[in-house]
């Protein structure tokens, strides 16, 4: 079974993000980048599927300029078999991303596409859904459990929805986006790191894919969230209730 996993390069969630003073973006100096944590979870799931079946192929795909090689290499070190780098140096909105991915899917023909439910940089939460629509494939978003049928023709996916869990099933091929609790991704092991050096990263240019990349969405400005005020210690329950009522106005 061939599984395609999408990998986006995003700022490390542990780094402090500063918005540029003109609001046009974030300051990128001295920022560390990682694989989008939800994509890492998707990759882990793909690797587990492959390990369970004892066969198959896990292919990574990332869109961006050459620096994303770093994240692809890490994914290869975790255990993916090969990677595709779609070279592109323009900013893309979710639809453009989905359109490019659709071309890659057509070309690669995977039975399953595993993606993160969202990327932690722009939090759009759209690419998976849009890709499913473009391909006319079934989708299961916010997955917390994935079970492949014995004949490998279908999946059952538990989804984290408001107020509980929902389990749905569909016939492959299809698209699954991962939620936080799907699994705990493995370490890029040292032997894995050494092997990754020799694995293939195929480069294709986005411009050659004949995908419509024209932006539907532009970012007008970014603003940092307002500074949180320091917490307060209260002496008594009465005081707390008073403050919740008068100041926070929540009761």
């Amino acid at each position: 079974m061939k599984v395609l996993v999408t990998v986006k390069r995003v700022p490390d969630p542990e780094t402090t993000i500063r918005v540029k003073s003109d609001g046009s973006g974030i300051e990128t100096d001295n920022i560390k980048y990682v694989i989008n944590p939800f994509d890492e979870i998707a990759l882990e799931e793909a690797l587990r599927i492959k390990e369970k079946l004892g066969a198959g192929e896990v292919v990574l795909v990332s869109i961006g300029d050459s620096v994303v090689t770093e994240q692809l290499r890490t994914g290869l070190a975790m255990g993916a078999d090969r990677a595709i780098l779609v070279g592109c140096d323009q900013d893309l909105d979710s639809l453009a991303v989905a359109r490019i991915l659709a071309k890659i899917v057509e070309d690669e023909g995977p039975q399953l596409v595993l993606m993160g439910k969202q990327a932690i940089d722009d939090d759009a939460n759209q690419a998976g859904q849009m890709l499913a629509a473009l391909l006319g494939w079934p989708q299961a978003t916010f997955a917390s459990e994935v079970v492949l049928s014995d004949d490998q023709q279908a999946v059952k996916v538990t989804r984290e929805v408001d107020g509980g869990l929902e389990t749905i099933g569909f016939a492959l091929p299809g698209i699954i986006t991962s939620d936080l609790r799907l699994n705990e991704p493995r370490y890029a092991s040292l032997p894995g790191i050494m092997k990754a050096r020799k694995k293939e990263i195929k480069e294709v240019a986005a411009a050659d894919l004949d995908a419509d990349m024209s932006p539907r969405l532009t970012i007008n400005s970014l603003e940092p969230p307002t500074q949180k005020e320091a917490g307060k210690k209260v002496e008594t329950v009465e005081e707390l209730i008073g403050l919740l009522h008068d100041e926070a106005k929540v009761i």
Partner: peptide, 12 residues
């Protein structure tokens, strides 16, 4: 690159 990945794995 592989040394940096090693650092990252140990860091984690």
């Amino acid at each position: 690159e592989e040394y940096r990945m090693l650092q990252e794995t140990v860091r984690r």
